[in-house]
Write a protein that binds this DNA or RNA. Sequence first.
DNA 1: GATTGTTTAGGCGGGA
DNA 2: TCCCGCCTAAACAATC
Length: 284
Amino acid sequence: MNAHGITGTCYMNADYVNPVGVTNPSVSGQNSLLVAAGVASMNPPLQSAGPVLSPGFGPICSGPTPRRASTYAKPPYSYISLISMAIQQSGTKMLTLNQIYQWIMDLFPFYRQNQQRWQNSVRHSLSFNDCFIKVTRSKDWPGKGSFWALHPDSGDMFQNGCFLRRQKRFRSGTKACTDAQRSGSGFSSSPQSNPRRAEVVPLQHYHQQQAAHQNLEPNHPHCSFSHRFSISSLMFEQQNQTPYLPVAYGGDSVSSANRTIPDPSHTDPFYHPLQNYSRTIMDC
DNA sequence: GATTGTTTAGGCGGGA
DNA sequence: TCCCGCCTAAACAATC
């Protein structure tokens, strides 16, 4: 088995994204798309991008109408991509680990199986990659685990918003370290000097950084992805594939449809009750 | 005890 | 061929 879900660049995967034959028009403007898709982009992910729509990742080699699928092919996105998408989709631009899990499982049925395996990989990706920063909880928001956010300078990781293989791995200036250095004999495992540990930012500092960054870069790639493998394209395709959803989940459809979204007020410091709504698969 | 986070190791595929 | 990005597994510590 090929351990890699990624088979190549964005262009090599061109056939993968449309298993139900949805033609993806060129899109621009993530927010408008999300609104068009009935998704309030400013809402936290567990309310907004919840168990919405299957991107339609059915078996790659199925026939011309692979609508009834009992198993799902692995999406062409790397874990880094998925995490990035989840964080970007959230109104707060930061999620807990569990919220990231939920977002991925809600959007990609493939990841409702073998959870231990891929969740370990997700955790590894978060810790390992400089593009993710850990935002510590404030005393006002006790709970398990920190929030995870995207490094403010990581926006160009995915060229033009393409969420497949990155052009170049993001490395923050303070944590320059290569795989070779890690695997080589020169790597120090000392916790204090270890450059691999995720950057930790207090919640308040993170908010300040976010505000400053948005002011400086109104056209930041985070907000202007337009590639067909971008999150906006993904959401657009979900919208177009809605008619196929009731049968797309196979044996998992019942549990998915009846699943309610966990109360985010326990974990989301930005939670607002008016934003909360539970959606089911059938609602879409 | 479960979850979260960190670290190490090994392997595969793509691109230069 | 080598480097790089990525995936997976596993062990361990810290925290809730």
